[in-house]
Computed example of a mutant assay.
Amino acid sequence: MAKALIIGAGGVAQVVVHKCCQNPDVFEEICIASRTKSKCDALKEKLDGGKTKIQTAQVDADKTEEVIELIKQFGPDIVINVALPYQDLTIMDACLATGVDYLDTANYEPLDTAKFEYKWQWAYRERFEKAGITALLGSGFDPGVTGVFCAYAQKHYFDEIHTIDILDANGGDHGYPFATNFNPEINIREITANGRYWEKGEFVETPPLSIKKVYDFEGIGEKDIYLLYHEELESLALNIKGIQKIRFWMTFSQNYLTHLKVLENVGMTSIEPIVYEGREIVPLQFLKALLPDPASLGPRTKGKTNIGCVIQGVKDGQPRTYYVYNMCDHQEAYKEVGSQAISYTTGVPAVIGAMMILKGLWKKPGVFNIEEFDPDPFMEQLNKQGLPWHESFEPVLLD
C-alpha cells in the first residue's frame, strides 16, 4: 500500500480522489493539495471515513520550494499532477529534489506561448534516470488511453501500424449557449491554434479548424469532426513502429464554433496582456472568469463521450483495420464521482497510471510516455475502474 500526493482540486482531481478511495488496497493514504485549501477540504469532507486516509494542504504549485516542502512533510510514493500544464516543470523539479515518482495528464505548456510540445519534459529524461525515479507523462485519456490503445493494437494485432486516427467525440449537452468542458484557457488555446498532423516523417500544418469530416459514432450518432493538433501525435510518431500518418479529430457544434469565432474576432481569446483602467489583464484569462466553471457542468450535462482510435496496418502480410474505443455517460459519471465524463475520462486513467507505477508494473527510471509501457495491465484496469473498452475490425474509415 502506498501514499499519493494529488496536486489540484478541480473536476479531474475530484475523480482522482474518488478513484483512489475506491482502491484502498493500493492507495492507503492521500493528500489533496491546491492553492485554495478550502476546495481540498470540501473533497476530504465528501470522502472521509473510508479505508483511505485523507489529508489536505495548501500549496502554490508555481513555486518548486513549496512543493518540495509539502513532499517532505507528507512523504508520498508518487505525485499525481492534476493541476495546470503550466506547472508541470516546477512539480517535476520538486519530485527530482525529493526522489519521488511523478505523473501528469497533459504536457507542459509555457504560460506566454500557446505551444504543445514534449521537448521541455523530455529534457528531464537523464535526470530522472539518474535519480532512479519514474515520470509518466500524459496519463489522461487523450493523451493517455489513446496511447495505450495504440500500444495494445501494436502488441496484439499488427506487425506494422501505418495510420492512426484518434477520434474524440463529446455528445454531451450542458444547456449553456457557450461553455468549455475543461479548463477554458487550455481548451480555447488548443482549438484556436493551427492544426497539425504527422505524415511521412514530418508535421503538416493547417489553418485552425480548416479540415472537417463527418463521423457516425456509436451511442452519439453523426458528428462534425475537425482536425486539431494534439500532443500525443508527437510521442506516437516516435514510439509506434512503421507509422506513416497520425491525425487527431475532435467534435464541435456549429453553435460552439460561432461563439468561438466571435470571441476570437473581438480579441477575447488572446493571451497577449492588455492594460485596462491601469491594470494589466490577459483577455483569455478574463474570459475564463466569465465562463461557467467546468466543475459546475456535471449535474446539468447529459449524453455520452466516445473516444477511440481507428488503426490501419499489416498483419502477416495482410492489410488490417482495427477500431478500439470507450463510451462514457456524463450522468453516470456524475452519479459516481460528482464530475461529468470529460473529467472522468481524464481522472480515471491518471489513477490507473499511478497504480501501474506503485505496483511496479511500469516502474523504471526515466521520463516516459504512456505507450512505451506494456498496455495489457492498464487495459485490464480500464474495464475494472469504469472505462470499459470496445473493439471492432470493421470500422468506418475516414478516407
Rank of each mutant, 00 (worst) to 15 (best):
A9L: 01
N194G: 01
L257C: 13
P184D: 03
R125M: 01
I281M: 15
I166V: 15
Q55L: 12
R189C: 11
T346F: 06
D101T: 09
W362F: 07
L361P: 10
V15D: 00
F373E: 11
E109Y: 02
A123Y: 11
T36A: 04
I166Q: 01
K63M: 07
L43Q: 06
T64M: 10
E222I: 14
I164V: 15
D173I: 11
Y226W: 14
P208F: 06
G278P: 13
W362Y: 11
M1R: 07
N383I: 03
L290C: 14
Y118P: 12
E234C: 10
A179E: 07
E218Y: 05
G347C: 08
A97M: 03
Q381V: 04
F27L: 08
V351T: 11
K44A: 15
H330I: 08
V100E: 11
Y157E: 05
A153W: 06
V82S: 03
Y118F: 14
I220W: 00
K63W: 00
D159N: 15
A13R: 05
I164L: 12
I246Y: 10
Q58H: 01
P299K: 00
I32N: 09
E66T: 02
F378D: 06
A106S: 13
L284G: 03
F252Y: 15
D41N: 10
L89V: 00
Q121I: 05
D165L: 12
V367T: 12
L137R: 08
E65I: 07
E336K: 05
F128N: 05
T258D: 15
E185H: 08
Q381E: 11
I161E: 04
F128Q: 07
Q58S: 12
V204F: 03
T301D: 06
E232W: 01
F248A: 09
G99L: 13
E66G: 07
D77R: 01
G75R: 11
T251P: 05
P208S: 10
I271M: 04
Q385K: 15
P365E: 03
S34A: 15
N369V: 08
F368Q: 00
T64F: 02
K245R: 15
E129H: 08
E65L: 05
K3P: 02
Q385L: 14
F203L: 07
N170V: 08
H156Q: 04
Y226D: 10
K212W: 02
Q312G: 04
T345Q: 04
E222C: 08
C150R: 02
I188M: 05
D104Y: 00
Q14D: 08
D376S: 10
G172M: 00
I91A: 01
H156E: 07
K302N: 09
M356A: 07
K130T: 04
K302Q: 10
F141I: 11
A114D: 13
N23Q: 11
R125L: 06
P292L: 08
